[in-house]
């Protein structure tokens, strides 16, 4: 009986977690060598016209408060360790969005001596938004796609918990 209650509790908890995660993801922005183009477009998405806060997304200064790391630019020699450190400081579960062509593949900066590579050579990336820079709408589109996948994943986990409790009940 206790296990059944426990499973029900897990299922409910998973649902609450997913709801919280999807409805109010806080983000931190990290520039690891970008030309500023993507950065000002990210800033533009939080200003009145695009207003990213409609999705509960809030730009945060501290990695400790953030769920999503928004990365721009190729990774430069001096930014590599800092990027890793910021990523490690973020609490689990954490998600990384690479914004702009150079964050995804190095873009025009492929082969420059100051560039180590692109974001997913340093930390794992969950969503990619190409563009040079992407329009604010495209950035919103990328974040919405990421949140959609989190919702689906959360439902699947809750579903598993439900399935488990059903088998335990029978």
């Amino acid at each position: 009986m206790a296990t059944i209650l426990g499973k029900k509790w897990d299922e409910a908890l998973e649902q609450v977690k997913t709801w919280a995660r999807v409805n109010s993801p806080w983000a931190i922005h990290f520039n690891s060598g970008s030309c500023n183009g993507c950065d000002i477009e990210i800033l533009a998405t939080v200003t009145p016209r695009y207003d990213l806060e409609r999705f509960g997304v809030k730009l945060q200064g501290s990695p400790r408060h953030a769920d999503i790391l928004i990365c721009t630019g190729p990774v430069t020699l001096q930014a590599r360790d800092r990027l890793k450190r910021v990523y490690e400081q973020m609490p689990e579960p954490k998600f990384v969005v690479a914004v702009g062509s150079c964050a995804i593949s190095g873009g025009v900066f492929q082969g420059c001596y100051g560039v180590v590579g692109h974001i997913d050579q340093v930390i794992p990336v969950d969503a990619y938004i190409p563009g040079c820079p992407p329009r604010p709408e495209a950035i919103i589109d990328g974040l919405v796609k990421l949140l959609g996948s989190l919702q689906a994943k959360g439902e699947a986990t809750a579903g598993e918990a439900r399935h488990d409790s059903a088998t335990a009940h029978s």
């Binding site: 020699l77 001096q78 082969g111 420059c112 001596y113 100051g114 180590v116």
Partner: peptide
């Protein structure tokens, strides 16, 4: 000013004999 602290001594990027290899 620009190069990292641990940049190898004696390597100067804008000299012609510096060939940027992938790190």
């Amino acid at each position: 000013l620009f190069l990292p602290e641990n940049w190898p001594a004696g390597v100067h990027p804008l000299r012609k004999d510096f060939a940027p290899g992938r790190q």
